[in-house]
Amino acid sequence: MEKIDTLIIGSGPAGYTAAIYAGRANLKTILYSGLQPGGQLTTTSEVENFPGYPQGVDGNQLMMDLREQAGRFGTEIRDGEIVKADLSSRPFHCVDDRGNEIEARSVIIATGATAKYLGLPDEEKYRGQGVSACATCDGFFYRKKVVAVVGGGDTACEEAMYLSSLAAKVYLIVRKPFLRATEIMKQRVIDKENIEILFEHNTVGLFGENGVEGAHVVKRLGEPDEERYDIAIDGFFLAIGHKPNTELFKEYLDLDAQGFIKTVPGTSKTNVEGVFAAGDVADPNYRQGVVAAGSGAMAAIDADRFLQAN
């Protein structure tokens, strides 16, 4: 049984930044990088909006830089994942995928969120080559081009509006015959002249030689008047929601309706004393690398103050 000050579960900007701060605070810290070391940013080829990289940076490179920096300050970084976490009493008892047991005086959860995809093989094929789940991250690459956004809620409408200021044209592909978004968002999208809403449409595939060049769509799928055709697009954006990776902790932590960890406003504190949450796992609103990094710093500072007081 290993006894440590702080266990960080998850990598990505939140986990690695927490590790930098925890290491510099001289806390005995172990970080488990999880199934996707580096998190969602490793699926993005070019990151242009992370401060300090004026020429942009490859997502994998950015995460490698953060990982190296975290290691420099003494955090032990382990590949693999935590498979059991008992947060019912302190010190917290956790077990990794190799069966190693860890007793931690504080825990920082930075397990992120996973974008929901339609489940088409083509999404995997063109990931990073025209398929994206973040308009704010990748919209810039589609200036004066034609893009499609899938979804009918507030997120989809917000992404469509954001992209409409960059792209020449935006298709909003909506499965239902209506938008689920709030009235104000609906109206904005309807009024925007370069957004075309395709109601009762399903995307069944994507095509293109060197990246996405178009989508196969079906209007009124399965109905007698079903209609199949193709639209020419350069980018395909998914806005059907994110699933926070909170399965392991739901027994102990307060979650919102979508499963995101609730934190005390202005802090990284959860409802369990000594357990902190950082990054996308606790952020349904912004989902940006720089915001996650900032919340990772907050979590490590909160953990250090907690340990000093206890």
Rank of each mutant, 00 (worst) to 15 (best):
Ile261Phe: 00
Tyr142Ala: 03
Ser295Asp: 09
Asp191His: 12
Cys137Lys: 08
Val149Ile: 13
Met298Ile: 14
Leu62Cys: 06
Met298Phe: 12
Tyr171Phe: 15
Thr44Leu: 11
Ala18Asn: 10
Leu62Tyr: 04
Ser164Asp: 12
Glu2Tyr: 15
Gly112Pro: 02
Phe73Asp: 03
Leu31Asp: 02
Ala19Phe: 02
Asn310Thr: 15
Glu247Leu: 04
Gln308Gly: 11
Lys262Ile: 13
Lys186Pro: 09
Lys125Tyr: 15
Lys243Thr: 15
Asp79Lys: 03
Gly266Ile: 03
Gly241Pro: 05
Pro224Ile: 05
Arg98Leu: 13
Val149Gly: 10
Gly71Thr: 03
Thr136Asp: 01
Gly152Leu: 04
Ala115Ser: 07
Lys3Trp: 05
Ile173Asp: 01
Asp79Asn: 14
Arg175Gln: 11
Gln187Ile: 05
Tyr142Ile: 04
Ile190Leu: 15
Ile231Trp: 03
Gly59His: 08
Glu196Gly: 04
Ala160Cys: 10
Arg305Cys: 00
Glu123Met: 07
Gly139Tyr: 01
Asp86Met: 10
Glu101Cys: 09
Thr29Asp: 11
Ile261Ser: 04
Met64Asp: 12
Met298Gly: 01
Phe92Pro: 10
Tyr286Pro: 00
Cys134Trp: 06
Ala257Lys: 15
Ala282Lys: 14
Ala293Tyr: 01
Lys116Tyr: 11
Leu118Ile: 15
Asp97Ala: 12
Glu124Trp: 03
Gly214Tyr: 05
Glu124Ile: 11
Val170Cys: 08
Gly274Ala: 03
Leu221Ser: 10
Tyr229Ile: 02
Leu27Pro: 01
Ile195Asp: 11
Gly222Leu: 01
Gly130Val: 07
Arg24Pro: 07
Ile102Lys: 02
Ile173Thr: 03
Asp256Phe: 03
Ala25Trp: 00
Thr270Gln: 07
Tyr53Leu: 02
Ser45Phe: 12
Asn285Gln: 12
Ile195Thr: 12
Val131Ala: 12
Met63Pro: 08
Val217Thr: 01
Asn210Pro: 00
Glu183Cys: 00
Leu66Trp: 00
Arg127Thr: 08
Thr111Gln: 06
Ile233Met: 05
Ile233Glu: 06
Gly38His: 01
Gly128Met: 10
Leu206Asn: 03
Ile195Leu: 13
Ala70Trp: 02
Met64Arg: 14
Lys250His: 10
Phe141Arg: 09
Gly112His: 01
Pro284Asn: 07
Asp304Arg: 11
Tyr162Thr: 08
Ala148Thr: 06
Ala160Tyr: 07
Glu81Gln: 14
Gln258Lys: 15
Leu87Tyr: 10
Val57Asp: 05
Gly71Pro: 08
Asp97Pro: 04
Asn310Asp: 09
Leu206Gly: 07
Glu213Trp: 02
Gln69Trp: 03
Asn100Cys: 07
Val290Gln: 07
Asn49Lys: 04
Gln61Lys: 15
Pro265Leu: 04
Ala181Tyr: 08
Glu227Asp: 12
Val146Arg: 14
Pro224Phe: 06
Gly279Gln: 09
Cys94Asn: 07
Glu76Gln: 11
Arg78His: 14
Arg78Glu: 00
